[in-house]
């Protein structure tokens, strides 16, 4: 069964997903990677992180997997443009990966689990494809860390509505704080967890943030759902969008959120 990717593939969203690099998004995993490792980037999207990982483990191969084949076409085009050869791509489902047991030395799942209905099941599958002693890195934002200042009733309403859409669409917006436990429960021998804050507090960045948030609000998986469920009418949704834009222009606007990351190790043979 295909799950709903609530944040969608709007142009500004893709600009954001495509700006992620191995350094800014997978830095916590990089110290555990070595040349010649075979790595799986599960939920690789447009491939910008995948490319960076390939640079770290070359001549080892990084395999990028995503549920959206056309995202992989973008990733492949990017790899071609950058001349990176030690990459492979396959469309696949995180719950039912097309790889034999113990295929990989390392796995990255960046902003994947939070979009899934059943993160523990996906983690068990990711563990299956790791060799004994293999390492996994997971990173997601946790909705509990979301702060938008100065807040207004309409911004609060926007936040509540988007969260409701995430949950209705089967996402796991509060799982990230439990990543360490989830790794242990999925059978990893040990795990370490970290957090880092994301922030937008300059005029240019609050505008980017508001544009991203508005794009996500306008995704059918949010906008149409809200209308269908009667959570808000179109006028109200437009008012939320306008409030986001107004917020971005405030000289005191500040947005803060939390990324949680964890590293887990499969028991040595």
């Amino acid at each position: 069964m295909r799950e709903t990717y609530t944040v969608g593939y709007g142009e500004t969203t893709q600009r954001w997903t495509g700006a992620r690099t191995a350094a800014n998004s997978a830095g916590f995993l990089l110290p555990h990677l070595r040349p010649d490792m075979r790595v799986l980037d599960c939920g690789c999207g447009p491939g910008s992180i995948t490319l960076g990982l390939a640079g770290v483990v070359a001549p080892g191969v990084v395999v990028g997997v995503d549920v959206a084949p056309w995202q992989l076409a973008r990733a492949r085009a990017l790899a071609k443009q950058e001349g990176v050869k030690s990459l492979a791509f396959a469309a696949g489902d995180a719950y039912r990966l097309p790889f034999s047991d113990a295929s990989f030395d390392a796995v990255l799942a960046h902003m994947l689990l939070g979009n899934l209905r059943d993160p523990p099941a996906a983690l068990r599958e990711l563990r299956r494809v790791l060799r004994p002693g293999g390492v996994i890195g997971v990173r997601d934002s946790d909705w509990g860390g979301w702060v938008m200042e100065p807040s207004t009733p309409l911004l609060e309403e926007y936040r509540a509505l988007f969260l409701r859409a995430l949950i209705e669409n089967g996402a796991s917006p509060f799982h990230a704080r439990t990543q360490r436990r989830l790794l242990l429960e999925a059978g990893f021998a040990r795990a370490e967890a970290f957090a880092v804050a994301g922030d937008k507090g300059t005029p240019a960045l609050t505008r980017v943030a508001a544009e991203n948030l508005e794009t996500r609000l306008r995704e059918p998986a949010v906008w149409e759902l809200a209308l269908r469920r009667g959570w808000a009418d179109a006028t109200r949704l437009e008012a939320m969008a306008a409030e986001l834009r107004a917020w971005a222009e405030r000289p005191d606007a500040f947005l803060l959120w939390i990324f949680c990351a964890a590293v887990g190790w499969v028991e040595q043979a």
Binding site: P69, Q71, L72, R76, A90, A91, G92, R96
Partner: peptide
């Protein structure tokens, strides 16, 4: 690119 999505997920648009 090999499309290794299980059959029940392959026909639907992404």
């Amino acid at each position: 690119i090999p499309n290794m999505l299980p059959p029940d997920m392959r026909s639907q648009p992404a």
